[in-house]
Write a protein that binds this DNA or RNA. Structure first.
Length: 648
DNA sequence: GATTTTTCAATGGA
DNA sequence: CTCCATTGAAAAAT
């Protein structure tokens, strides 16, 4: 048997000739090496249903000029698929009888010229009455040319959806500590959000980037990928638009999750060899049967033929997670194009579909690569090697638990080194009232439980979970303190143990100086404290001194803590008794001379960290610590941002 | 439309 | 700690 020719690159001529030809059951040479799918051996092509108008054909042909230049080539592929999808979208059937149960929410105000709504209902009433399973919509779109205003809008939507997901997940997890059966809080959270109409982009099938999701964004659960619309299949690796929704009747893949679950996978970052699905026992690595070119496999093959870009999400096992055993984390790595599709025996002997994907140029740095560079930086610093352009290996000069490197790759500014570093502000300690009085702290000898006096000052249950993450944002948090009987390892002293995740200060184009994470920071984790010189408000001598100084006013921070842990979308959730009114801090922080890392965190109105007031033991309530907590999963090399309450 | 099939999860116990 | 069986949910296919 003569060897089949390699598949021609999917250029336009090829595309045009292939549009109607889909080999459904290829029969490759059983004992040969992996053979390309023989297009010639395909069954008679189904009728070509995509309307190729003369204009469209001309437009496509003009793209023909094959260029050796990769960028031009990829750009041409992108334009091709754009043309194709536009043609398909234009001919798509309408969403079947307004399939969304809830009435479409009012469109948010939008500034940019931009045709795609796709906002999940903000005020949509939970469509609990309708039993009908709401199916995803049929309309297929690609969102392009997002203006800055649109980007902010979508980023805020994604942020809120993830906050809700995390709050619900935490709520469900705590709700039944050990109710016999398995507690899949993640599934319950996503399921509830679906029924409440809070999945994003439900009314549309998005090809390409999901607006509001950045390359490098990290997710702890597959269910979370569903909620934001990145990858709709809860378990399957290939997400696709079913053939019944494209007018040609062929499925098209939109996203894949690569978790290294197959023997034949290879991954060098920009190039990924992905194995199709099927032929495998669940949870098993090895194949026991041949795969077939159906469903997801067929969809991915069609993405190859049509040159449609595919979202790639990589699953990493991160042993470094604070909460114990080898969790997985899913990182959005951007858009890839399928450059080859083959079918043949894999390592286990059975036939497998293999797809080679190449990352499209012009995107933000590969998320997975950022993890790598962060690790290299950390290794170098552990070995006391100063990477180039690092002006300090430790801004705190040993004062912090972890070293805080400073990096400036832009100019010669070394100003962070000019400030004195203070790990925590020095508050005026109130004189012990009543000398005969006993210590005001708790007397818990080992661990502080629900009986602990300090814990009970926090109305509505424990402040921190087992893993040390903040359960719920509060007006103020009372931790145990110096006068308590418990050790520093007490569960109620999370912020006193210092930073747990490495940060670095860096010079940035946009914000002057900024702070970014070197470690993965889980949502709800303590990040660091704001520090500087304390200026009491009622201190007359201090008032005049604030002129011309860098002052942080703790009162100016918007109450972003309200967004954290708020699961009130679920009516069964009640946050318990509200703690008494908190007057708020009565001091200013002067960071003109002394400061710490936190002062370099930049501002955003879609922040990924927030401020939580924390009182340690019997400290003055007027002077709560300004503690920074993560609001979302922060991947390595991602800049931290907080809402300072300045208009932006 | 209802039911079955498919799926590179996640848990908690052994 | 690794293995594993069980439960689980949504979309596509039937």
């Amino acid at each position: 048997m003569e060897p089949s020719p390699p598949p021609p690159p999917p250029q336009i001529s090829h595309l045009l000739s292939q549009l109607g030809q889909f080999p459904v059951t290829p029969k490759p040479d059983p004992d040969g090496p992996i053979t390309p799918i023989p297009a010639a051996a395909a069954p008679p092509p189904p009728p070509l249903m995509l309307a190729l108008t003369p204009e469209l054909c001309d437009a496509l042909r003009q793209e023909l000029a094959p260029s050796p230049d990769d960028d031009a080539y990829f750009a041409s592929c992108l334009r091709q698929s754009q043309l194709y999808l536009d043609a398909v979208a234009a001919r798509l059937r309408l969403p079947s009888s307004s399939s969304s149960a809830a009435p479409p929410p009012p469109l948010p105000p939008r500034q940019g010229g931009q045709e795609q709504p796709g906002a999940a209902g903000s005020s949509s009433s939970p469509a609990s009455s309708t039993k009908k399973r709401a199916r995803p919509a049929a309309e297929m779109v690609r969102v392009a040319n997002l203006g800055p205003a649109d980007h902010l809008h979508y980023r805020a939507l994604v942020r809120r959806a993830r906050l809700t997901f995390e709050a619900l997940r935490g709520f469900y997890q705590r709700e039944e500590p050990s109710a016999g059966a398995r507690n899949r809080a993640d599934l319950r959270a996503s399921s509830f959000m679906l029924s409440a109409g809070r999945w994003l982009h439900r009314e549309v099938r998005i090809v390409g980037h999901i607006p509001g999701v950045l390359v490098g964004d990290a997710f702890y659960y597959r269910a979370e990928l569903c909620v934001v619309g990145l990858h709709l299949a809860p378990q399957a690796g290939i997400g696709y638009i079913p053939g019944s929704l494209t007018n040609e009747g062929h499925p098209v893949a939109t996203s894949i999750v690569s978790s290294g679950g197959y023997l034949d996978d290879e991954d060098t970052g920009d190039v990924l060899v992905y194995t199709g699905s099927g032929g495998r026992q669940r949870n098993r690595l090895d194949h026991h049967a041949d795969q077939t070119l159906e469903r997801g496999n067929l969809a991915l093959h069609n993405s190859y033929l049509y040159a449609v870009e595919v979202r790639v999400i990589r699953g990493h096992i991160c042993g470094l997670t604070p909460n114990a055993t080898g969790r997985k984390i899913y990182v959005y790595d951007g858009l890839y194009r399928v450059v080859s599709s083959t079918f043949g025996p894999g390592k286990s002997g059975h036939d497998v579909c293999k797809f080679k994907l190449v990352r499209l140029p012009g995107q933000d740095e590969l998320g997975s690569k950022s993890w790598h560079t962060a690790k290299q930086l950390k290794d170098a610093m552990d070995a006391r090697i100063r990477p180039p352009r690092y002006i300090s290996l430790d801004l705190s000069k040993g004062a912090e638990h972890l070293r805080v490197p400073v990096c400036n790759k832009l100019d010669d500014d070394r100003s962070p080194l000019l400030f004195e570093y203070t790990v925590r502000p020095k508050f005026h300690v109130p004189p012990a009232t009543g000398t005969g009085k006993r210590q005001r702290g708790c007397h818990c000898a080992t661990g502080c439980g629900s009986k602990c006096r300090c814990q009970r000052k926090n109305a509505g249950g424990p402040v921190y979970g087992e893993d040390g993450t903040l359960v719920l944002g509060r007006p103020v948090v009372y931790e145990c303190g110096a006068s308590c009987g418990c050790p520093l390892t007490c569960v109620n002293r999370v912020t006193q143990r210092g930073m747990k995740h490495r940060l670095e200060v860096f010079r940035s184009h946009e914000t002057g100086w900024g702070v970014r994470a070197l470690d993965l920071i889980p949502p709800g984790a303590f990040v660091c404290e704001f520090s500087g010189d304390v200026v009491l408000m009622d201190d007359d001598s201090g008032k005049g001194l604030t002129e011309g100084r860098s002052i942080i006013d703790p009162k100016r921070f918007p109450k972003r803590w309200k967004e954290w842990g708020d699961a009130s979308v679920d009516p069964r959730y009640n946050r318990g008794p509200q703690s008494a009114e908190f007057a708020g801090p009565g001091y200013l922080l002067d960071v003109s001379h002394k400061r710490n890392v936190a002062c370099y965190i930049s501002h955003s109105c879609t922040p990924n960290v927030f401020l939580q007031f924390v009182v340690h033991g019997n400290e003055d309530e007027q002077c709560p610590h300004l503690m920074v907590f993560a609001m979302e999963t922060i991947p390595p090399m991602r800049e931290l941002s907080i809402d300072y309450g300045i208009d932006g």
